[in-house]
Design a protein around this nucleic acid. Structure first.
Lengths: 337, 337
DNA sequence: CTGAAAGCGCTTACAG
DNA sequence: CTGAAAGCGCTTACAG
């Protein structure tokens, strides 16, 4: 079942069938109707590989995700789903590729071999070998997170430094004087993971700007670490009355730790940060937090990729989002002791 | 940069380069070396579309997921990541396709157009139109979950009925007499979602077998519903001392409800079920539960798909897994009142 | 052990 | 408005 078969049965040439399908050349109404009838009858769909070969484009994007071994956070997962939806809205498919660990073969398959028209690169580091690789291969790509690299000028990011700063100032306005940042893991901070590095910087700047005392604590991406981490905070700095965090995976542990310590939020302790909205809403009480707009970031990333693929690309573009802090119920005035 | 360029620079024919790459025909050691040098120097990778067109296979599998609107559970997400890893281990890529909702175009693109060599179909219903569609298109596929349909004989599933039965008998052994099943949503039950339907059946059978009193409660897939649901249970059947569940998303709400009710697990109330191991371990206390083996299911699904694609397929095969119940800390003797 | 050539199923100038 | 033909970059019988 191919285009020649359709052409034969419709009594036209293969090019006419092709043009009837693509609309790139006028075809008489009668002919189009006859072709469509045959196509519907036989359930024909053009072979994607042949089309890709002829057109020089695959109508597929690659999405490079962290390896499965590293558990994805809610914000990341929402992002994957949203990229697939955004791409589907433009009739693009999405090829998934884990990277890091033993997955270089998968990443290489995506990059070379013209398997995809462009790539969305998640979880980027400040220095990222994959960025060099993609730039070198001349494959269009959009990074989630921005690197300090001239070749990687297409990106979408959330302004973690600014948002964490807002959270801190919000706490300061409420009278808090001793605050802490529950950051992501030692490993990610050391690796130069942007959100972790920039959150710490934004936190310290805001703390200094308001004359507060602030501590930064790195915390592994899992509930148990959140629990342990909070207990460490209570032991070292009992004067701390509020925390800001970007560590979604640690959240259940923080919740548990607050409960074990007999602290009620926000009466005894305030908690805020930059988090997926679902997590913020599912917390008890719902968290006042800057919601990471995963859906919007995904749509923007796909849009930027399409710009490059379509050749509309004038200059490399990027978008730095600064979503508002949603006031929910987890922050309150500094408790009197 | 194509195979002709490599051939020219290596001073051989294009077919020799092709055979040197595939190893499907003996090539002299010297020639192979020269070809490999040129390839390494120019960083050549064969064009995937051209190869797919010539070979009649794409080395890509489709993974049909529920639409992003429906939040994926932890077990489902682990499954997606594991499928990608299992496929990568065989040098297969994975094309993601949401289905349901407005995503029929995406599903159709996958099915027709020979875009993939086979499909893994997640979240299958007892009667599933997509199964008919794939069977009709003659595209190899493996369902996660089994349908009562002759054409869909390749599947991998967890024996929810048996596992829930084990959980119930475990509770009966501990002396519990009034138990409840927190099932998944009304919608999924009504739609004939296998795990929900079979869990309820297995629960009722086991309850009857041990002479217990049992109630089934459907619960939407979100924390708030879990909370509300548990409070309903306490109000209607205060004599209930244990719950079994397959609803991962409701778990945080159950946790919260237990806490609000002042019930300590397992002293005052026992909780068990069929769940992703990570969730079971992150609960307080860690849940005694049958761990859904997402990684193993993914590997099996990919293996079954490869069997079909390789033409090794003698008879349709399926695998029904019955993982053990992991004894952790959430079940105990029936409380004395 | 190697090469020349046909073929996979499309798209798109070129011609009319 | 339509057709014949070249070309996309591979693989694989066919020949030697």
């Amino acid at each position: 079942m191919n285009i020649g078969e359709i052409a034969k049965r419709a009594g036209v040439s293969r090019s006419t069938v092709s043009y009837a399908l693509s609309g790139k050349r006028p075809v008489s109404v009668r002919t189009v109707r006859r072709i469509n009838e045959v196509i519907a009858e036989l359930g024909y769909q053009p072979n994607a590989s042949a089309r890709a070969l002829a057109e020089g484009r695959t109508r597929t994007f690659g999405l490079v995700i962290p390896p499965a071994s590293a558990r994805l956070t809610d914000a990341q997962l929402g992002f994957v789903a949203s990229v697939v939806e955004a791409a589907a809205a433009h009739d693009y498919d999405v090829l998934l590729s884990p990277s890091g660990g033993d997955h270089d073969r998968s990443f290489e398959r995506i990059v070379t071999g013209r398997r995809v028209d462009g790539v969305v690169l998640m979880e980027i580091l400040l220095e990222d070998a994959r960025v060099e690789r993609l730039a070198g291969a001349g494959l269009p790509f959009v990074a989630i997170g921005h690197v300090e690299h001239p070749g990687a000028s297409w990106w979408v990011d959330v302004d973690y430094a600014a948002l964490i700063g807002r959270c801190v100032r919000h706490l300061a306005d409420l009278g808090h004087e001793h605050v802490v940042l529950v950051n992501r893991s030692d490993y990610l901070v050391a690796a130069g993971y942007g959100p972790a590095v920039r959150s710490a910087a934004g936190f310290l700047a805001a703390v200094a700007g308001r004359g507060l005392t602030g501590h930064v604590v790195n915390c592994a991406d899992e509930p148990a670490a959140g629990l342990e981490c909070f207990e460490r905070i209570r032991a070292h700095w009992p004067e701390v009355t509020a925390a800001v965090t970007i560590n979604e995976a640690a959240l259940p542990g923080l919740q548990r730790a607050l409960q074990l310590a007999g602290l009620e939020v926000p009466r005894d302790f305030s908690l805020t940060g930059v988090l997926a909205d679902r997590l913020a809403e599912d917390f008890h009480p719902p968290l006042t937090a800057a919601d990471v707009p995963a859906g919007e970031m995904a749509r923007l990333a796909v849009d930027l990729l399409l710009e490059q693929v379509d050749g509309r690309a004038a200059e490399p573009r990027h978008v730095l989002l600064e979503p508002p802090v949603s006031l929910r119920s987890s922050t309150g005035a500094r408790p009197r002791r």
